[in-house]
Computed example of a mutant assay.
Amino acid sequence: MQRPAPLGGAEFAPETTYLNTAASGLLPRSSADALRAALDESASYGTMGRDYFGPAAASRAAFARLVGLPEERVAVGGSVAVQSALIAASLPPGSEVLAPEGDFSSLVNPLAVRPGLTLRTVPLERLAEEVRPGTALVAFSAVQSLDGRIADLAAVREAARTHGARTYLDVTQAAGWLPLRADDFDHVVCGAFKWLLCPRGTTFLAFGREGTSGGEAWPEALHAGWVAGEDLAASNYGPLLRTAPGARRYDEPHAHFSYVAAERSLALIEELGVAAIHAHNTALADRYRAGLAERGLVPRPAPGSAIVSTPGLTDAEPRLTGAGVQVAVREGLLRAAFHLYNSADDVDRLLKLI
């Protein structure tokens, strides 16, 4: 078996064996340097810096390229839950929303609490077959946070098309390592602080061409503030005369420092390439699964995933933390997540300590 070395070169030199990207990613050195420079600048030019919109615009464009969309179909924000609430509000009363059992709360809770909607949950493996004529929206994660299972994206997309349902895909645990085409779905949301290596406060909401083609109107921009105006200089006071064209109408006043760092992090992901990162991450995950099998341990089935969650190992977490190995425990599972800055040595150290 090959021994993958870390990707990213001098961008990463963690003091820990970091295997917890499914919780949050490591910030690249160039991103941290840009953030420090922005903090220094804020002492003389304010916390919006000298160029408030530049880093967010560059980040929007980079994310759009990563998921195969034009940038005018991507909105920037700070919270997946807020963006989920926008999608929930776009559904007419009486709508049925279909979602996998146990999907992440930021995705499904705004849909669950919206008055007038019915949220129906089913096992992930049955999601496509459970789409029915009365289903208005299928909301699901491309990769499950708990155990790394990858949804059958093509099957769900086709089932939704057959029954006239919209699709809302969360790629928070997928973007950055799993090749994706956002154009295949109506709405795509991403918290970028995990596999895309951005700070918290960086999220994207993308609209596939299907969601706004054929004369269908864009959803109402219910949380539109001044940054959502077509003419920013004329959008500071009173109701907006016109919202921005395209997805920018859904922009939130963004956290400037988060996007300063995000611009550099997304550039690194683009430079390395999602295909190369995917091959690297899955090779490490497969190495770990093979080592578990040698010890008679069986992780939750999640073929092809960079996330490996294993029952019966939660008592190892304090020992791992004490040795500087960062993993997570979720619902009785020891979860390890392998990303571009990890190596075969990291896998072997984890196996030795469990």
Rank of each mutant, 00 (worst) to 15 (best):
268 L>M: 02
275 A>Q: 08
283 A>Q: 11
278 H>W: 09
309 S>L: 09
286 D>R: 12
280 H>R: 01
244 A>N: 06
279 A>M: 04
254 H>S: 03
299 P>M: 07
251 D>P: 00
291 G>M: 11
237 Y>G: 12
278 H>S: 11
299 P>W: 06
270 E>D: 01
303 P>V: 13
253 P>D: 11
297 L>E: 08
290 A>L: 12
289 R>K: 11
244 A>I: 04
245 P>D: 09
297 L>F: 08
285 A>N: 06
260 V>Q: 05
300 R>A: 15
273 G>H: 03
255 A>E: 11
241 L>Y: 09
244 A>L: 07
252 E>I: 08
273 G>M: 02
278 H>M: 04
280 H>V: 00
286 D>P: 07
289 R>P: 09
266 L>I: 04
298 V>A: 15
293 A>T: 07
239 P>A: 13
279 A>C: 05
301 P>W: 13
249 R>E: 02
258 S>F: 01
297 L>M: 06
294 E>D: 11
277 I>L: 03
250 Y>N: 07
238 G>F: 12
290 A>I: 08
253 P>V: 14
271 E>Y: 00
296 G>W: 09
279 A>Y: 03
256 H>K: 01
260 V>W: 04
264 R>E: 09
243 T>V: 15
285 A>K: 05
256 H>Q: 03
279 A>P: 03
294 E>Y: 07
242 R>L: 10
259 Y>P: 00
278 H>F: 13
298 V>Q: 14
260 V>I: 03
253 P>Q: 13
245 P>A: 09
285 A>C: 06
294 E>A: 13
276 A>P: 03
279 A>F: 03
282 T>I: 14
262 A>Y: 07
278 H>L: 04
285 A>V: 06
284 L>Y: 06
283 A>C: 08
307 I>W: 10
302 A>Q: 14
262 A>I: 05
271 E>N: 00
292 L>V: 02
292 L>E: 05
297 L>G: 06
267 A>M: 02
256 H>F: 08
309 S>I: 10
259 Y>C: 00
256 H>I: 00
247 A>L: 07
271 E>T: 02
299 P>G: 07
257 F>E: 14
292 L>A: 04
243 T>Q: 09
246 G>V: 05
255 A>K: 07
301 P>C: 13
280 H>D: 01
308 V>D: 14
290 A>R: 15
236 N>M: 12
262 A>P: 02
304 G>D: 11
256 H>M: 02
274 V>S: 06
253 P>W: 14
302 A>C: 11
260 V>M: 04
271 E>M: 00
285 A>P: 09
240 L>V: 09
251 D>R: 00
265 S>D: 03
280 H>M: 01
260 V>H: 02
245 P>E: 11
284 L>C: 06
283 A>N: 10
295 R>E: 14
290 A>V: 10
271 E>D: 04
250 Y>L: 08
252 E>A: 15
276 A>S: 12
284 L>P: 10
302 A>G: 13
262 A>R: 07
249 R>F: 05
280 H>E: 01
255 A>L: 13
276 A>Q: 10
273 G>L: 04
309 S>A: 15
241 L>E: 15
292 L>M: 05
